[in-house]
Nucleic acid binder design. Structure first.
Length: 323
DNA sequence: CGCTTTTGACCAGCGC
DNA sequence: GCGCTGGTCAAAAGCG
């Protein structure tokens, strides 16, 4: 499928959606000419969800997927990926692009960093003899692992923002930055500063539209957000961030708490309410949620927030009531 | 002083 | 095997 055609179709799909309450006018990925081929599967799946004919990549999404769209300053696309293998399969459905920045699904290994460090340390001890020879060289030891490292699930976001590193309620330490092929914008690598929390995120700016920041989370926090209390959600700006960025974590909690058929019901309800086609016979693993927040949301009372945490940011309130 | 950022080097995986 | 690329390490610098 040609990428321009896809973009047009996507735009059409949005424009024709019958969702009654929300304004789609500034859903970034669907307005203007956005080159979807430049981002990977995550956005592709979103496009298809929104009406592009070929659903096959989306159908291969191994897990519950989430699409989170925001108005106001930020429009966001979220599609979690699962293990890299399956994601790679999804990627194969895309047209190849010279700039496939790996937003979502490189299936490399993600050894537990602590384990890796321990291993490296052990090997360093073994190599003490060589120290004299390699003194000028960095003592980076080969990470010898017989087994492939496993990737944590990833959640990719596209956010229209002027700042690269968005405040999301967690504390991050930058541990690397790399130039992105065919892009003037570098990719930054962050790690959650909490001990025993292996969550990482990558932040890069789309070179096709510098106003778009692509944030990819990997893993799930093992701790509550230390920075962004629920009390700030009444602030519009913080509200948007709070709702989107920790999404993977809360979505996962949600997944753990609900049965599969309930998820599917949510999917059906959500998609149909948005006027999007949904193939009921498709695999449940394809569940896709769409969530949108109004500019000045007055949903979510304090009691509601207490009951659901950030869940209301993921699933519309009327759906939560069903549960 | 402790934490974070910067940045060049290194490593692993993959395609050819 | 080689080169390319994404991802990570870790010393040094920066910062409050």
């Amino acid at each position: 499928m040609e990428k321009k055609e896809m973009a047009v179709k996507t735009e059409d799909a949005v424009g024709s959606s019958s969702f009654p309450c929300y304004n789609y006018s500034n859903l970034y990925p669907f307005s203007n000419a956005f080159d979807f081929s430049e981002v990977e599967k995550s956005s592709l799946g979103f496009m298809e969800l929104l009406g592009v004919q070929d659903y096959s990549p989306l159908l291969e999404l191994p897990q519950l997927s989430t699409v989170s769209v925001q108005s106001h300053h930020h429009s966001t696309v979220t599609v979690p990926s699962d293990n890299g293998k399956e994601c790679s399969e999804v990627l194969n459905h895309q047209p190849a692009t010279p700039n496939s920045s790996s937003i979502s699904s490189a299936s490399t290994d993600a050894v537990n960093d602590e384990q890796k460090k321990t291993l490296d340390q052990a090997e360093e001890d073994d190599d003490d003899d060589d120290e004299g020879q390699h003194k000028t060289k960095k003592q980076l030891k080969p990470k010898k692992t017989n087994q492939k490292r496993q990737r944590e699930p990833r959640f990719a976001f596209m956010t229209k923002s002027e700042v690269d590193h968005l405040e999301d309620g967690y504390r991050w330490r930058k541990y690397g930055q790399k130039a992105v092929k065919n892009s003037p914008f570098p990719r930054s690598y962050y790690r959650c500063t909490s001990v025993s929390c292996n969550v990482k995120k990558r932040v890069e700016r789309s070179f096709t539209d510098p106003s778009v920041v692509v944030t990819t989370y990997e893993g799930q926090h093992t701790h509550p957000s230390p920075v962004m209390p629920r009390s700030v959600v009444s602030s519009g700006y913080a509200n948007n961030f709070a709702s989107v960025l920790p999404l993977g974590n809360y979505l996962s909690q949600y997944q753990q708490q609900h049965h599969h058929h309930q998820q599917q019901k949510l999917l059906v309800n959500t998609l149909s309410s948005l006027g999007f086609p949904y193939n009921d016979s498709s695999s449940p693993k394809n569940a896709v949620f769409i969530q949108e927040r109004r500019l000045c949301s007055n949903q979510g009372t304090n009691a509601f927030l207490r009951d659901h945490g950030l869940l209301q940011d993921v699933v519309p309130s009327h759906m939560l009531k069903e549960e």
